[in-house]
């Protein structure tokens, strides 16, 4: 075990994957000698050479197109998109190519070995284009997996899982926690399964669900609620697609209430999918409407960032409304 922040945990996962398998290649904008604008790829080029860790020209559609070809060839690409806000130029390559490659070829070819890493989320004064949480766009793409860790331990275990997984994975890293979140991380390899949620705390009055950087906000709100005698069950979804409906449904069947929170805008956000599914599965158990505490349906603002964010106070108020419905 070693104390690591999330960047060090990501770096440790990449080093371990590249050491174990010479087909693993890491590339993107500024990831080479410089080690990435957040330093997640520090020292990789020195350790593994310029052929396996390299800078690409500044073209997101090119990075993912290139990665698709590399994956189809049999290599194991780990491509970086500098900010999730800039993944949209590669949207066509991801939606129409990466995700459909295996299906359209009848399983003859696939991009299963591809992992796309990208920093996401707000709270860093990033304004419109350094704050977005685009996971819901990608949750609508059959063939993709979407994964979001909440701390350094998760980051390493889930990233190693994503790299090994035989399906293309979008791995979204909460950049607000890159240096802020520090924890014990095993130096050896370990994996955390994809598609599995984690119940962090048992409770009986309400189920609280979030992912990534929003988990610590949720925990803070839960603590306030607990102080008022409300027993909260806290779940980290971890995988957006495919998501772990059974764990969430089991929890809601016990508590009778569900609150989902994410930074991304409300309309069309992934909370909508969860709410609809749980409403179908748990209709007779629900004692109050499923509540969503999300970002506003606006672009992500700079000056009003604090007001935009679904913070612990907004969640706390929503928990009380839900419980006292």
């Amino acid at each position: 075990m070693a104390k690591m922040n999330m960047l060090q945990a990501v770096n440790s996962a990449l080093i371990s994957a590249m050491t174990k398998n010479e087909k693993v290649m890491v590339f993107g904008e500024d990831v080479g000698h410089f080690g990435g604008v957040f330093r997640a790829t520090s020292n990789l080029q020195e350790k593994f050479g310029k052929n396996r860790c390299f800078n690409t020209p500044l073209t997101e559609q090119g990075i993912i197109g290139f990665a698709n070809g590399l994956a189809a060839q049999g290599s194991v690409p780990v491509a970086e998109i500098q900010f999730a806000d800039y993944i949209f130029p590669a949207f066509d390559q991801i939606v129409n190519e990466t995700a459909k490659w295996r299906y359209r070829s009848g399983g003859q070819f696939s991009c299963g070995s591809l992992t796309i890493r990208t920093p996401y989320g707000g709270g860093i004064a990033g304004g419109l284009y350094h704050s977005q949480s685009p996971e819901a766009f990608f949750a609508h793409i059959p063939g993709m997996k979407v994964v979001i860790p909440r701390n350094p331990y998760q980051a390493k275990g889930l990233l190693l899982s994503a790299i090994q997984d035989d399906n293309p994975v979008l791995f979204m890293e909460p950049k607000r926690l890159y240096r802020a979140s520090v924890g014990e991380v095993p130096e050896d390899d370990y994996i955390i399964p994809l598609g599995k949620a984690e119940v962090l705390k048992q409770g009986s009055d309400i189920s609280l669900l979030a992912w990534g950087a929003q988990m610590e906000v949720l925990e803070k709100a839960a603590q306030m609620a607990e102080e008022q005698g409300i027993s909260c069950e806290i779940i980290d979804l971890r995988s957006i697609l495919p998501w772990d409906r059974d764990t969430v449904a089991t929890s809601v069947q016990k508590t009778g209430r569900l609150l989902i929170s994410h930074e991304a805008p409300l309309t069309g956000g992934f909370a909508s999918e969860i709410a609809a599914s749980i409403q179908e599965k748990c209709f007779l158990h629900l004692e109050s409407p499923i509540t969503r505490v999300c970002g506003l349906d606006t672009p992500y603002p700079l000056a009003h960032e604090k007001e935009y964010m679904p913070d612990h106070l907004k969640i706390f108020e929503a928990i009380k409304r839900c419980v006292h419905f």
Partner: peptide, 28 residues
């Protein structure tokens, strides 16, 4: 598309195979 003949499965979106071919060749 046929793997045995090294002929990559065609897709309708135009031009997508161009950067993919660069990546495939890099892998080779």
């Amino acid at each position: 598309g046929v793997k045995e003949l090294n002929f990559m499965t065609i897709s309708s979106p135009l031009g997508t195979q161009i950067p993919q071919a660069s990546g495939y060749a890099y892998g080779q």
